[in-house]
Amino acid sequence: MGYIENLRRSIGHQPLLLPGAAVILENEGRGILLQKRRHPQNTWGLPGGLMELGESAEETAIREVREETGLTIDNLQLFGVYSGAMATAANGDCYYPIIIVYSTQSFHGQMRVDPEESADYSFLDVHECREQLTLLKNHRPIIDDWIKKH
């Protein structure tokens, strides 16, 4: 059981600050890697997740991408930090996300889908398909900012 799960056992649904990391994994000519998530069902977002105790934001990004996709990444560049309004998970947990976003074009390995978290992964040209995708609410501004810069 992870840090957040243990903390939730003590405090229930009370609001938490939840730091995490996400990665804009760029594949030249084919856009960015998006994850079709299992929860919330049929939503798309960037690979990433919550920070564990003792991890740096960069370590969180690298670990989450490896766990979720099977890919190893490096040469991370800070893209931005996103925070804001409180969110409520489907189970009633309240939280304020703090997402530290990195970008990279440097990756290797065999991509695989973790069926616990993902339905699919695909490099998508978000310039063309953004409006057709149901994006995670917290990831929409990140992807919009990436589109503006590219």
Rank of each mutant, 00 (worst) to 15 (best):
T88D: 04
N91S: 01
L50F: 02
G45M: 05
G84F: 05
S106F: 12
E67P: 04
G54E: 11
E55S: 07
V126F: 09
I143T: 06
E116Y: 12
L18R: 11
L34F: 07
G29K: 05
L53S: 10
S83F: 13
R38W: 03
D125L: 12
Y82L: 09
W44P: 00
H139L: 10
Y96F: 14
I98Y: 06
S56M: 07
R37I: 00
A89C: 03
V101M: 00
Q105T: 15
S83G: 11
A22H: 07
G70K: 09
G84S: 10
G48M: 03
I143F: 10
E67F: 10
R8F: 01
S103R: 15
G109E: 08
L18A: 08
G45W: 06
F123K: 08
V65I: 12
R37H: 08
I11G: 03
S118G: 11
E28V: 09
V23H: 04
C129K: 14
G92E: 02
Y95S: 11
G29P: 09
P15H: 04
E58M: 12
R112F: 05
E52H: 07
R140A: 15
G84P: 15
P47E: 00
G54H: 10
D120N: 05
E68Y: 09
G12T: 00
L25A: 03
W44Q: 03
F107N: 03
F79C: 07
N75C: 13
A89F: 02
H127M: 08
